[in-house]
């Protein structure tokens, strides 16, 4: 599941040739080496040669973090509509649905992690860069409300360019909506672990990404509010190399730990056990 799409995205050069090929090898964006796909897959979508982190699809991420066959999806049928009649948004939505093979930019549900029942959400970079519109906000809010009711911990994986412009203020106010639901979940003593992946920016950074009890990040993930190009332009200077990189954000005090992909499941399991009462 999902792997076919993964191949196709990793090989835009092949697609541009007009014919969709199914490559056995993928060119790593970092080291430019041709790596057999089977090897990358076995290595949790990390380049075995240079350690580059390929983007993972939301569903694959959930499979990686949860116990086998334990995931039950919630609210899978919610779909966005072009409520403001924004130019080209309908086309963008259908392109995103095709590219991601998902109905929206976040997948929510429950699963067991190390045997422990947990609520989980995972954002999908292939759906309009994981942008948060009304449906993404609604799904995450519902998940937190469900978790509050059932006293479940929430594990969230973020990847997002921020609020979805095409839905105007409706999307911006999802930040408020989600924040309030997270606060209610927290007030009743429930745990929220958030895993920041590349990139987590804009309105998502300024809400649900920064409201976890425990904040984890993937190595090298970009985490920040304003886009680097915007800052560069407004300051007229080049940015430090590690600017908004997980390691720097940790130094600045906003991340608890950087956890390599291979260790993420075990790490989160341990945290969940530590919070078991």
């Amino acid at each position: 599941m999902g792997l076919k799409t993964f191949f196709l995205h990793a090989n835009n050069e092949l697609e541009s040739g007009g014919q969709m090929l199914r490559p056995r090898k993928v060119c790593c964006k970092e080291c430019q080496r041709q790596i057999p796909v089977s090897k990358i897959r076995k290595n949790n979508f990390v380049c075995p040669e240079c350690g580059y982190y390929f983007t993972m699809r939301a569903r694959r991420r959930i499979l990686m973090l949860t116990d086998k066959r334990s995931f039950i999806e919630l609210d899978r049928d919610l779909e966005s509509i072009n409520i403001l009649d924004f130019p080209d948004y309908d086309e963008k939505l259908s392109a995103a649905r095709e590219k991601s093979r998902e109905k929206e930019g976040v997948i929510c549900g429950t699963a067991r992690i190390g045997g422990k029942e947990t609520a989980i959400f995972s954002m999908d970079a292939n759906f309009m860069m994981g942008s948060m519109g009304a449906v993404v906000g609604e799904k995450i809010t519902r998940l937190f409300e469900y978790a509050t009711e059932k006293k479940l911990s929430v594990v969230g994986v973020t990847v997002s360019g921020g609020a979805r412009m095409q839905e105007g203020m409706i999307s911006l106010m999802q930040m408020s909506k989600v924040s309030a639901a997270i606060k209610r979940h927290s007030n009743l003593g429930n745990l929220y672990i958030v895993l920041l992946t590349n990139p987590t920016t804009g309105g998502v950074d300024a809400s649900l990404a920064m409201q976890g009890d425990i904040t984890l990040a993937e190595p090298n993930a970009r985490v920040g509010f304003a886009g680097p190009r915007v800052i560069e332009k407004s300051l007229n200077q080049t940015l430090p190399k590690d600017f908004q990189k997980a390691s720097r954000v940790l130094e600045c005090g906003f991340i608890d730990a950087i956890v390599p992909r291979k260790q993420q499941k075990e790490y989160i399991e341990k945290l969940l056990v530590l919070h078991d009462v």
């Binding site: 300024a206 920064m210 920040g224 304003a226 800052i231 300051l235 430090p240 600017f243 908004q244 600045c252």
Partner: peptide, 12 residues
């Protein structure tokens, strides 16, 4: 929008 604002946690 700036380096210091980001590093002091604008998002947070």
């Amino acid at each position: 929008c700036g380096i210091e604002a980001e590093e002091r946690g604008q998002g947070r």
